[in-house]
Simulated scan of single mutants.
Amino acid sequence: MRRYWVYVPTVYDPARPPNLLLFQDGQRAVNPRGSLKVPAVLDQLIAARTIPATLGIFVTPGNRSEHYPADLGMQNPDHRAEEYDALSDGYARMTLEELLPAVARRWRFTDDPKRRAIGGTSSGAIASWTVAWRHPEAFGNIISFIGSYTSIGLALGSDGSPVTYGGDTYPGLIRKSPIRPLRIFLQDGSSDLDNEHGNWFLANQQMLKALEWANKRADEEGHPGPRYDVKHAWTDGSHSDADGGAILPDVLRWIWRDQQPGS
């Protein structure tokens, strides 16, 4: 069981399908007392005509219950790690085959990946990365705040060998895989977590270095095709939505900087 909220801009026109922003941990993203306040940010930016009209979808992780609990507040549902930190295609399939079609039955939005962004914080960030990494034909933009590119998803068998892998595998996959046509914003703080799963700040720096190295190698070898369009913000914050929330307006302007507000 999960919940989702849909933000419909006041300038919504079904004849001109708007951009799409899909954000994980929807219960935190829409909370007016939280750090992100994504609907309010969209209101301001769209009204100021600094980003195009954008439809927002804010979705929670699943919860192992027949009915979604009414008292979770800003807390995370209990199936979050299994969905968000897995490197498999399961969460992406749910997103693309169930969630988006359910929303599209009522509200139209663009099918152009360059006009679609997916994002989140912590494990919501790596979940967003996994969806776009596996399906760049669906999402061309990623917003990653305090991303958990660590070994949360790693499970060991009885002989100590990996049964499933964690997000710390991604820098190697980026270096050894074809470049996807993705625009990525990475944010993390130097006081982020350091525990049995890994060091978050170092993990995010490894992601950036891998993306930059892939571009450099492609340039040096003259490979045709896309390059990663990547920007980052290293702050001094901890494992909190606060720093990402503070820069979210600038991030959205950067993500859709090629588009005119009326496009």
Rank of each mutant, 00 (worst) to 15 (best):
W5Y: 15
Y7I: 03
V8M: 05
P9Y: 03
D13Y: 13
D13A: 13
P14H: 08
P17S: 04
L20W: 02
L22S: 10
L22G: 08
D25C: 10
D25P: 11
N31K: 03
N31L: 07
N31W: 08
P32A: 03
S35Y: 15
L36E: 09
V38F: 06
V41E: 14
L42A: 03
D43G: 06
A48G: 13
I51S: 02
P52S: 09
A53Y: 05
A53G: 14
T54G: 12
I57D: 07
E66H: 11
P69V: 13
G73H: 10
G73W: 12
Q75M: 10
P77M: 06
D78T: 02
E83C: 00
D85T: 15
L87Y: 04
D89Q: 10
G90T: 14
Y91C: 11
R93T: 15
M94F: 15
T95V: 15
T95L: 14
L96M: 10
L99E: 00
L100R: 06
L100Y: 00
P101A: 05
A104W: 04
R106P: 01
W107Q: 02
T110L: 05
D111L: 07
D112A: 06
P113S: 05
P113V: 05
K114Y: 01
R115E: 13
R115N: 09
R116M: 07
A117M: 13
T121E: 01
S122M: 11
S122R: 11
I126F: 01
A127W: 11
S128V: 11
A132M: 10
W133A: 10
R134C: 05
R134T: 08
A138W: 06
F139G: 00
F139N: 00
F139M: 07
G140P: 00
N141R: 14
I142F: 02
I142G: 00
S144R: 00
S144H: 01
I146A: 12
G147W: 07
T150E: 15
S151N: 15
I152Q: 07
I152P: 01
L154H: 07
S158N: 06
G160Q: 02
G160K: 02
S161C: 00
V163M: 06
V163S: 06
T164Q: 05
G166I: 10
G167D: 04
G167Q: 04
Y170K: 02
K176F: 13
S177G: 03
I179C: 08
I179K: 05
I179H: 01
R180A: 15
R180F: 06
L182P: 08
R183F: 08
I184L: 12
D188K: 01
G189A: 09
S190D: 09
S191H: 14
D192W: 08
E196N: 13
G198A: 10
G198I: 10
N199K: 13
N199D: 15
N199A: 11
W200F: 14
F201M: 05
L202H: 12
L208Y: 15
E212N: 09
A214L: 01
A214H: 04
A214E: 01
K216W: 11
A218H: 09
G222I: 08
P224N: 07
G225L: 03
K231S: 14
W234F: 15
D236W: 02
H239R: 07
H239N: 06
A242L: 09
D243W: 00
D243Y: 03
G245N: 11
I247W: 00
D250H: 09
D250N: 08
V251A: 01
R253K: 15
W254I: 04
P261D: 10
G262K: 11
